[in-house]
């Protein structure tokens, strides 16, 4: 007896979620960040961000279909982190590293924030 592990399953599932997002299919919450609108899936936001977990785990918020973030949040940083949630790829560079760090802290994505912090430190050492 044995079992078969499909090693690329997690990536295939996430790619399908990203295809749904890009076609705005089955999206169930719009996130407004400083005037910009992002169509997303609650389950992905909650799975990736402590902030969204704390928001949507409250019964009174579970059916929310729109949420506006604090005006201090940078849409560019949020967009990069949303892409990360749906692809596992974080597009860091000197221009966006600090805003991505700050946004990751706000969204309670500690592991990404640590990575941004290490990236910034490494660039200062160069």
């Amino acid at each position: 007896d044995g079992c078969i592990q499909f090693t690329r399953h997690a990536g295939d599932v996430l790619l399908n979620f990203n295809r749904l997002r890009s076609r705005n299919l089955l999206t169930d919450v719009t996130v407004q960040v400083d005037g910009q609108i992002f169509h997303t899936h609650k389950a992905i936001l909650v799975a990736c961000s402590g902030f969204f977990y704390s928001v949507f785990m409250k019964p009174e918020n579970a059916s929310l279909s729109a949420i506006s973030l604090d005006p201090k949040v940078d849409p560019k940083g949020f967009s990069l982190l949303l892409d990360f949630m749906y692809t596992s790829i974080l597009n860091l560079n000197d221009t966006v590293a600090l805003t991505t760090l700050n946004t990751a802290i706000y969204l309670q994505m500690e592991h990404v924030a640590d990575t941004c912090h290490r990236f910034i430190k490494s660039r200062h050492q160069v």
Partner: peptide, 21 residues
């Protein structure tokens, strides 16, 4: 699945949702 003989399947596991219809 500790102790169970696991065969790793490297191919695609599910259908791929197209970029557009």
């Amino acid at each position: 699945y500790e102790g169970v003989n696991t065969i790793k399947e490297r191919g695609r596991s599910i259908h791929e949702i197209p970029r557009q219809d």
